[in-house]
């Protein structure tokens, strides 16, 4: 910048004629924008998970309650929405959220790794465990979602005979196998860690974070993570201990 540099270039900016890119382009092309995509898609999935976890707890009221709940989910929004219409809308939104979240994460991670090509010789343990495991945790969760759908939605990878609209028995089948429990519990722990850093991060990305709110946001993130983990873990534990049978 020369003697008149700042003001001259400032004037040039005030009268600039080049067009700014469209809103989606501007968001997608910026690291800050892509993080916004991650934050919003993450919050959509989080909202779904809270509802999903609460719905799962109905299993403790017995097969009739739980199976009826599964039936009711398919009649949601009726009579405007026909059988399973609302469910399919939710599924489409969720798939869009998962894809947007994963693609943004992949592109940002690649960029991050390229931005730090040489490591320090003197290494120190950095950041919290939840923060350091975001990428691997995300991959574990992605793989889990595929298995979870094949296991309990389509029944393709279900141990024993999969019965459509009889989720009570299906859930017991899955959690009667050792691998079903191991895979599920691993994924739920990964989810808790992911939400712990993810929720707080989303708040920062969306500009809600501030020094005054930091404690409240961290408490909220930890509370959500704990609640989701405990709620989801309770189902396989219920089956293993015979409370659900």
């Amino acid at each position: 910048m020369g003697l008149f540099g700042p003001s001259v270039s400032g004037m040039a900016l005030a009268t600039r004629t080049d067009r700014r890119p469209s809103l989606p382009r501007a968001v997608w092309d910026s690291t800050v924008g892509k993080k916004t995509v991650m934050a919003v898609s993450g919050l959509i999935m989080l909202l779904y998970l809270v509802a999903h976890m609460i719905g799962n707890l109905k299993i403790f009221f017995g097969p009739d309650d739980f199976n009826h709940y599964a039936h009711w989910l398919r009649t949601l929004g009726g009579p405007v929405m026909r059988w399973e219409w609302t469910l399919w809308v939710i599924r489409v939104v969720l798939v869009a959220a998962v894809v947007a979240h994963a693609v943004s994460a992949y592109q940002l991670s690649r960029r991050d790794l390229k931005a730090r090509p040489s490591k320090y010789v003197h290494k120190k343990p950095r950041a919290s465990y939840a923060t350091r495991t975001m990428r691997w945790g995300g991959i574990i969760l992605g793989l889990f979602i595929v298995w979870h759908i094949l296991d309990l939605t389509t029944g393709t990878a279900h141990p024993g005979g999969f019965q459509h609209l009889h989720p009570y028995q299906n859930v017991i089948d899955t959690f009667s196998t050792w691998y079903g429990n191991v895979v599920y519990l691993t994924a739920v722990v990964a989810l808790g860690l992911h939400v712990r850093h993810g929720f707080w991060s989303a708040a920062q990305t969306l500009g809600v974070g501030s020094a005054a709110r930091d404690r409240a946001l961290k408490t909220c993130a930890n509370g959500l993570a704990l609640l989701l983990t405990a709620g989801f873990v309770s189902v396989p534990v219920g089956v293993m201990t015979g409370v659900v049978s």
Binding site: D29, K35, T131
Partner: peptide, 15 residues
Amino acid sequence: VAQMDSEGFGGCTLT
């Protein structure tokens, strides 16, 4: 922010 991105800095993961 656009200049920061074009210089090849990484994104923020709030560590």
